[in-house]
Design a protein around this nucleic acid. Structure first.
Lengths: 129, 129
DNA sequence: ACAAATGATACTAATGTGGTATCTTTAAAG
DNA sequence: CTTTAAAGATACCACATTAGTATCATTTGT
């Protein structure tokens, strides 16, 4: 099972390229050329990233894309959730039925703890890598 | 995005029921009745669990399923991989192209570290919860 | 022999992922 | 003020995965 889909993967690459580029405005065409991602697909991804304010777009001739903030402020976590939605381990396994209210579901606690750790860690990963 | 699919979820419930049951042999019919999982689907899951040696089945009249070992020795991790395969975050984002060999991909390191943590934690979660 | 259980296998429906196609809007350059 | 090079919007399609069904074969206690 993949935890990071192709969308996210491509998006990361594009963002990294933007971060590394010295000219601050980069066109989709350039990204297609260097990243070898199918043009219409990449364009869709860029549009999504734009809507989520992860990058900024400029229309018209001479337009393109650029990062709206420093690369080390862009969280991997945000890119993942942009494409894959909030990733949750699971709702309660037992839908509150069997859960003994004394222990308040050790299992659930543990899983939530793991979840939290992953999120906190993912949040430390930025584009500046 | 779900990290635990319905298969896994159902399987966990079934295993927990087996663990909690005092009679050690439980039929699929009984599981269907109490867990309210579609019969043919549950039967498929049980067959898979049997093949993976996570539970043991007995055919014929009076047959059924039981746990082959103590509930606290059955790892959530194993159940997950049984149904969802080994879960990997992602191959290398850059397919070894851009990776500067000096830093040997900080990103990748971090991700692997997170992955390892999740696995180690998941391995601590057993059916005895 | 029969009935009650699981095993094996093939099929179907719904959803998600990866990708395409087409048309509209914006804005700089000539 | 027209052309042209960019992005925006939207609808569509192919394939894979997930969730679930159906059917028949095999085993085993009574």
């Amino acid at each position: 099972m993949k935890l990071i889909t192709r969308d996210t993967d491509y998006a990361i690459r594009a963002l990294c390229y933007l971060a590394a580029s010295d000219k601050d405005m980069v066109t989709a065409s350039e990204l297609v050329r260097v990243l070898k991602i199918p043009r219409p697909f990449l364009r869709k991804l860029l549009q999504i990233l734009n809507k989520k304010r992860i990058l900024k777009s400029y229309k018209g001739r001479g337009g393109g894309f650029l990062l709206p903030k420093a690369a080390d402020k862009i969280l991997l976590m945000d890119v993942i959730t942009a494409f894959q939605g909030p990733l949750r381990l699971n709702e309660c396994f037992f839908k509150k039925k069997m859960c003994p209210d004394t222990k308040v579901c050790v299992l659930r606690r543990k899983i939530i703890a793991i979840e939290r750790y992953v999120f906190s860690q993912l949040r430390t990963v930025t584009i500046a890598s």
